Simulated scan of single mutants.
Amino acid sequence: MTLLIVGATGTLGRQIAKHALDEGHTVRCLVRSFRRASFLKEWGAELIPGDLLYPETLPAAFEGVTAVIDAATARPTDSATLRQVDWDGKVSLIQAAKMAGVERFIFFSILNTDQYPHVPLMEIKRCTELFLEEAGLNYTVLRTAGFLQGLIGQYAIPILEKQAVWVMGNTSPIAYIDTQDLAKFAVRSLAVPETVGQTYPVVGTRAWSAYEIIRLCERLSGQEAKIWRMPGPLLGGVQSAARFFEWGLDLADRLAFMEVIASGKPLTADMAKTYETFGLSANDMTTLESYLQEYFNRIMRKMKEVEYERQKAKEKAASKRKKQSLFK
């Protein structure tokens, strides 16, 4: 099967590309920069130039493509806005896929999109799901919550570096998933006919609150966290202020999503039907504990190696000074 992966340089997209290649699929990646995506070519993927913001660049990428796995999303560092990428870009992608007659289209959404119509990202995801369904494609929607990979920068690194960890509002428990596990479901769905025209939750083994994650990081690192709490009203004030400026509109849209995280409502779901349909089980999933344990073991080992080398250098320098003093 020839797959077109969109967003293949991202945290999730690269795992999808790798897993698809490992499964023997022919992988084509739509990329804006060949230099940034060079690692995908080294893995064995074909790189095709294209950009969701420029619909005219998309048709060439679909030649000979059997299925599309869409893992693209606007990044905070992008010049394009959330609406340009996650709505306008996705509409163009879906239309191009329909014109090309692709057999399957896999889309990633978020849990509980229908509960937050005033949160731009949630509403965009909901509308994209509807647009995809109405397009008449053989689609599968995978709704997730958050990635384990994001916890490193949010919690682990600040705690190790004795910096503040921000906690907002009532902190919703979130069932974070490893992107490698999510990639398995995405690629597996292509081989399971029952997933056509269906939507599935795909989340981690349990939901964790921010404070539970902080306590776990403290235990694994041996460090005490510095916690800064941001009240919900303050977050809302920042969001409102950002909307007064044109440059702040996309920032305000992103801050609006923080309301979901700070609402106290769990972002998790029953995975029983998903496991049964995809032929996987909870035992196949990476737990948050094991993921952070592996990370901290690796980092602590590296820190010990660095400290050992530093101590050796100090001893060598001291020995050299001692020898020099004997000849004075």
Rank of each mutant, 00 (worst) to 15 (best):
residue 215 R to T: 15
residue 193 P to Y: 05
residue 195 T to A: 12
residue 101 G to Y: 14
residue 24 G to N: 13
residue 316 K to L: 13
residue 272 A to V: 08
residue 167 V to P: 00
residue 249 L to Q: 14
residue 82 L to R: 01
residue 252 A to N: 03
residue 251 L to R: 10
residue 20 A to H: 07
residue 252 A to R: 05
residue 143 R to F: 13
residue 61 A to I: 12
residue 96 A to S: 06
residue 44 G to D: 08
residue 149 Q to A: 11
residue 278 F to A: 06
residue 223 Q to Y: 03
residue 118 H to M: 10
residue 249 L to E: 08
residue 39 F to L: 14
residue 291 Y to N: 07
residue 10 G to W: 02
residue 128 T to Q: 08
residue 5 I to H: 05
residue 72 A to W: 01
residue 112 N to S: 09
residue 220 L to T: 08
residue 237 G to H: 06
residue 71 A to P: 02
residue 169 G to I: 00
residue 95 Q to E: 09
residue 108 F to R: 02
residue 160 L to V: 15
residue 48 I to W: 10
residue 215 R to V: 10
residue 7 G to S: 07
residue 211 Y to H: 11
residue 119 V to A: 10
residue 203 V to N: 07
residue 16 I to W: 02
residue 323 K to P: 05
residue 229 R to G: 04
residue 77 T to W: 15
residue 183 A to C: 04
residue 198 Q to P: 12
residue 85 V to K: 00
residue 123 E to H: 12
residue 233 P to I: 08
residue 77 T to L: 13
residue 307 E to C: 13
residue 58 L to G: 02
residue 159 I to D: 00
residue 181 D to W: 01
residue 48 I to C: 07
residue 117 P to K: 06
residue 121 L to N: 15
residue 118 H to K: 11
residue 34 F to V: 11
residue 66 T to Y: 11
residue 62 F to Y: 05
residue 256 A to F: 11
residue 70 D to R: 03
residue 27 V to Q: 03
residue 59 P to R: 14
residue 209 S to R: 10
residue 248 G to W: 00
residue 251 L to T: 11
residue 84 Q to H: 06
residue 185 F to K: 01
residue 236 G to H: 14
residue 75 R to T: 12
residue 8 A to R: 01
residue 86 D to M: 03
residue 73 T to V: 09
residue 121 L to H: 13
residue 97 A to N: 01
residue 271 M to Y: 03
residue 221 S to R: 05
residue 74 A to C: 15
residue 258 M to C: 04
residue 63 E to F: 12
residue 294 E to N: 15
residue 160 L to N: 02
residue 254 R to W: 10
